[in-house]
């Protein structure tokens, strides 16, 4: 078995410990920045939805500010964002290197994206439901939690799946500026040393991770759609 594997992908087998470490780094980056982005993005997405003109907590200055900020960060290419937020990353995390150093830029890269995903998920909600809740005497908080979020679980799960996959993409780029992970692994060995088997295996691993994310997302959507 091992012999066959060594024949097929000699360099991968040689760098096996490095590969596992890179995989672990990638997963750590996705999990940490994913968790933080999920909470922040959910918060901002809800904020955008309820402060919009005509919505339950209409607040034009707040809406405009958040909306413009989200658009601004959405339009900065991630590779530039990576270096741009380095000072903030150093201040918050104490470093700009390794997984620790990658969390802040990854959060900046995915929160605006996820906020829009949440905003569009909540926009799918039939406004009649909000109206019905208001007519029953629900407070804005109740409407946020019991109507907007509760009734949009499936749509938010879809947005989360898309965001996690794009986040996985971003971690590969973060690797280039010292965060480690699969992207960095593939570039260092696969590209720089021209070991194609390393690139191929990395790609297979990434595809597997995407499949797992989409599978779980799909299950959540199915479970919450009636």
């Amino acid at each position: 078995m091992r012999e066959t594997l060594i024949n097929w992908m000699p360099h991968v087998m040689e760098q096996l410990p490095d590969l596992w470490e890179a995989l672990a780094d990638t997963l750590l980056m996705v999990l940490w920045s994913g968790a933080v982005s999920f909470l922040l993005g959910l918060f901002l997405g809800v904020l955008l939805t309820v402060t919009k003109p005509g919505a339950i907590l209409e607040n034009k200055p707040l809406y405009q500010t958040v909306d413009k900020a989200v658009s601004l960060f959405r339009s900065i290419p991630f590779i530039i964002l990576l270096t741009w937020v380095m000072p903030l990353s150093r201040a918050l995390m104490g470093t700009t290197l390794y997984v620790r150093g990658a969390i802040v830029p990854l959060v900046f890269g995915s929160v605006p994206f996820f906020s829009r995903q949440v905003e569009s998920a909540l926009a799918e909600l039939d406004h009649g439901l909000v109206e019905a809740a208001l007519s029953m005497g629900s407070s804005p908080w109740e409407i946020i939690f019991r109507v907007y979020l509760r009734e949009s679980v499936a749509a938010i799960a879809r947005g989360t799946t898309i965001t996690l996959v794009s986040l996985l993409n971003l971690t590969a780029m973060a690797g280039v500026v010292g965060a480690g992970g699969l992207g960095d692994f593939a570039v260092r060995y696969g590209h720089d040393r021209n070991w194609a088997d390393i690139t191929n295996v990395t790609v297979v691993l990434l595809v597997l991770i995407v499949c797992i994310i989409e599978f779980i997302g799909g299950r959540v959507v199915k479970k919450t759609t009636h």
Binding site: D126, G128, A132, G137, S138, S139, R150, A154, T224
Partner: peptide, 23 residues
């Protein structure tokens, strides 16, 4: 706002498209 929410509980409303919560 709070008193109004209380008052609304005593005014039921139904709609053309029912507005039931699908989940």
């Amino acid at each position: 706002a709070k008193e109004l929410r209380q008052a609304r509980r005593k005014i039921g409303m139904i709609f053309q498209h029912f507005n039931l919560m699908p989940s």
